[in-house]
Nucleic acid binder design. Structure first.
Lengths: 293, 293
DNA sequence: CCAAGTTACGAGTCACGTAAGGATT
DNA sequence: AATCCTTACGTGACTCGTAACTTGG
């Protein structure tokens, strides 16, 4: 199970085509065919159907493992390399959409006494930010999510990252003005189990977190939003496509909707600063090493 | 970063010797030397000092990643292979020490209506059991630990495993009879932060869990116990080497010590049945596939 | 000077590209 | 017939073992 083969397998499964994967990876398509054949004969299992090219049951299973493994491999390389890497004087920062408003403040705190530097900021889905901080594409990440007070966020545990909490907010449910519950001053999770929800895992609180908090099924997704634009998400909620949970301060900024505080059993909306240097102490210290000079 | 190279690196670091690692892995020592050289030149970092052979800062960093990666790789192979693997008629079961008393009952429930089969049982540290279930060495694992009520145990997230809760118990602190607190009918965690503790991560509740529950530092380990024998652990506690936390029922069995129920904020001692078939529904169904015929 | 890691070199293997060969729509 | 995957084959690269070399205690 050479990582090269895994990488090829993932590409083929994603493209649904050997030739497309080959083009993507810079191989000939014969090489891709050989890669898949090698994997299949190594595991003694058929991983893909041909014509059309679709992952089999075993292939789907392998796909679930492959991405984390490849990510971890990249993270390991990045982590080790970071130590020796010459400071670059550039800082790549990523943020999840709902953490973005806090970005300026967080950077000011960190960089206040810092020298000039080239700063790049990018907004991406929560898990994307975490993955890119792990793999070294980003130096720093700001992510938000639901967690027990003063508990670390549970990001997919592909690689150990250092997380520092930078804020906790009251979670608020976004409802269309016309919604029967829109006038309430507070809600309980149980009131909303049977509502229609928007599943926006990269942007809003993931439904899985709500489901776990509620200890119940429900929280059926009526719509899945894969973008990272909060305005669009709120517009969808305003149009009645479903409910979503935002941190309180963010909710106040949108006129067309009602934001009702929700009592979640022991959950707050938490924002964390992520960086990759496991043992590096304070983020300022890590930054200093990163930027020095 | 070929897994072969990583495996070699891990072996060298563990043995503290190229030659010993070579013997262990069935390579010549020249090959091992080349492996390490290849890794170092790939990462452009020195990973080991020679003479004596010790991991450098970067090497230690890599070691933290290597073990989980290799484990995940094994787990992926096992997971994919499991699907196609012919039922073996043999069942390898592992259990953490404190879950062992429940093993008979759990197996009876599962296997009651099952045909005869060859059964192997082994006791090992909690994380070992989880790792071996993931990598397919074990078919089924029974593990215990501290967790919020009806929350899954947080085992090291190397590989997704299906977990089914099979029991929750009141945690109890084991104290020598002569201990000033031994007469109490109940304790709070705060009473014990400054006590001397035994760190027995494979057997008792890991100190890290207590520390997290207490939201504090403290819980200094006076002694580390790496074995998996509950009797020995309790004997150490009885002799005053430190405190440890066991599930209530287990604590009653030992005469020389006092077991005092402890109120942990939202934590219970939980036992779970682990198996590897991610989507396989009930454990009975998984077992049926495993054993069929 | 001995134990232990490195370097040199050759043999076998492996992985890739080219090109020809099926198969499916 | 066209598209797409597989197979055959040759070349270049890689990996490992043997053996000579180097270094540190």
């Amino acid at each position: 199970m050479d990582p090269h083969l895994l990488r090829t397998f993932v590409a083929v499964a994603r493209h649904g085509s050997f030739s497309a994967a080959a083009r993507d990876l810079g191989y000939t398509q014969a090489a891709v065919s050989q890669h898949i054949a090698a994997l299949e004969s190594d595991l003694k299992v058929s991983l893909l159907t041909r014509r059309p090219v679709v992952a089999t049951e075993a292939g789907r299973r392998l796909l679930e493992h492959a991405a984390p493994i490849l990510l971890r491999l990249d993270a390991a390389r990045a982590d080790v390399t970071r130590l020796a890497g010459a400071p670059r004087g550039r800082l790549h920062v990523g943020t999840s959409p709902l953490a973005a408003p806090g970005l300026a403040a967080a950077l000011a705190t960190l960089l206040g006494p810092m020298p000039r530097l080239e700063l790049t900021v990018r907004v991406a889905a929560r898990e994307t930010v975490a993955a890119e901080v792990a793999s070294g594409t980003l130096d720093i990440g700001l992510v938000d999510g639901l967690a027990a007070p003063s508990d670390p966020l549970r990001l997919s545990e592909v690689s150990p990252l250092t997380a520092i909490g930078v804020g906790e907010e009251q979670p608020v449910v976004i409802l269309p003005r016309s919604h029967p519950l829109a006038g309430r001053t507070g809600l309980r999770l149980a009131d909303l189990i049977d509502a229609r929800w928007i599943d926006a895992p990269g942007t809003a609180a993931p439904l899985g977190d709500l489901r776990r908090a509620g200890g119940a099924e429900g929280f059926r997704a009526a719509l899945r939003y894969e973008g990272t634009d909060t305005g669009t998400l709120v517009a969808l909620a305003a149009a009645g496509h479903g409910l979503t949970v935002l941190p309180g301060p963010a909710a106040g900024q949108f006129p067309g909707v009602a934001g009702v505080p929700i009592t979640l059993p022991r959950l707050v909306h938490r924002t964390e600063l992520l960086h990759g240097s496991i043992g590096a102490g304070s983020p300022a210290a890590a930054l200093a090493t990163l930027l020095a000079g």
